[in-house]
Write a protein that binds this DNA or RNA. Structure first.
Lengths: 238, 238
DNA sequence: ATCAACTATACAACTAGACAAATATTACAC
DNA sequence: GTGTAATATTTGTCTAGTTGTATAGTTGAT
């Protein structure tokens, strides 16, 4: 008779549950064991259904935590319906940031050269996550010379914004003096933060910002989720 | 593929932090809770990573006090640093190119919009491979409006260069009016051309070049081998 | 016979929360 | 200032629960 696999009907049932709002975005679904009991099947059958939903981008599973409804209510874009374009110059000003860590430590070789410091000089470091529509799109780290900006961490904690924090510290304006871009494979932790699978392509960006006098004030590294971000370089105006 | 446990990746990150001098001998690391927040994991996962470092004798923890750097790693594997910098403004002009195909066909929707044509207008297409030091670094496709440049294919065949071919066709100079960049996974054919494995991260670039009057003359798409190419944006030359 | 769907079991990796033990910090008395 | 007690931090340990993966076996249709 009906040759629809059980897992498919379970997937369909879950899909309608989500579509009808019985599980909102970000909500945790019942555990696989609970779903298995509810439908009277083995856990693996439920997993098959969940994996189907995950492929469609409807849910996102976190090992040890549960399965969550993804913040992607609409279906996939064909063409340019959904545009996650972020301009390079605006990459430090995207609204929706979360602070992961604010630390103070010694500068390594690369950072020292970029900021015009000596190796071992103290730097303030801002680790954060850029979000758009609730979805993580970039994982960044901003490094500032501690001697020049002793109070920038509190400014960052208050504003969440590199630009505003630098303003508080006396830098009215700054310009990006260099940007380097390459493609990489996501590491395990990057994948975790960006809700990707390990090895997924990411856009790796390294940049230096300087004050009007050309003195470097910030050394920033960002990892963008390749599938969710397109960098648009406007060589003209804008 | 490589199912790296998250804790291992965190351990590696901490190891490099120590190896590169961001935390010196005797320094206290951030607390387990802070590290957990920074990496977006549970404290126990961080503890697993720290226990790994402790086993290696890199750090030692004191209950109630914190985790301190005991020594520097003696053999820290530094990844092969590839330094192939290519200017984004030169991404369509890299020397060492081989022609894969010169074709004439109808413009699709995207190309038509980019070049200011109608869908179905004829375009000349240049498929090629960019090389550096004998190694393939990019796979590109340049699309030109056939009506405006009827003889560009022969010019391309002679010069192998987009710039020179456009010069022959009467375009003394052109500027890049838009560039979009994202990271993707290499398809099978791209991997073949670029000597990568399928799924390896590649840098996908789409750009439009226009004559001094702002009229689009070329629509180019390039796939760069992520592990061999770093795009350097020179924001300072204006 | 073969293949897909499903079951069964076991373990690894990670999360979650609670509490204990050691240390650091602060407030206060003197 | 100095010593002490109270409080807050921080690491150590424990229990329990959840998802990810691997292996082996059963069932049923073509």
């Amino acid at each position: 008779m009906s040759k629809t696999p059980v897992w498919k009907s379970i997937a369909l049932s879950l899909t309608s549950d989500i579509a009808e709002g019985r599980y909102g975005t970000g909500d945790r679904l019942p555990t696989e064991a609970q779903l298995a009991a509810k439908h009277g099947v083995n856990r693996h059958t439920v997993r098959r259904a969940l994996s189907d939903l995950a492929d469609q981008g409807l849910v996102h599973a976190r090992r040890g935590a549960g399965v969550f409804v993804a913040a992607r209510p609409t279906d996939y874009p064909i063409g340019k319906r959904v545009r996650y374009h972020r301009s390079i110059s605006a990459s430090g000003k995207i609204p929706g940031k979360t602070i992961l860590a604010l630390t103070t430590r010694a500068a390594d070789e690369v950072e020292a050269e970029a900021l015009g410091l000596n190796v071992g000089n103290t730097v303030h470091v801002y680790d954060g996550l850029s979000l758009a529509d609730g979805q993580p799109i970039g994982l960044f780290q901003s490094v500032f010379p501690a001697e020049r900006f002793p109070d920038i961490l509190t400014a960052l904690a208050d504003t969440h914004s590199v630009t505003k924090a630098l303003q508080i510290c006396g830098i009215a304006d700054y310009t990006r003096i260099s940007t380097r871009l390459t493609a990489r494979a996501a590491t395990a932790t990057q994948a975790l933060h960006l809700h990707l699978s390990e090895g997924a392509p990411v856009l790796y960006s390294v940049g230096i910002n300087a004050d009007p006098d050309g003195q470097p004030v910030e050394y920033g590294r960002t990892v963008f989720a390749g599938e969710r971000v397109t960098l648009t370089l406007n060589d003209g105006d804008n």
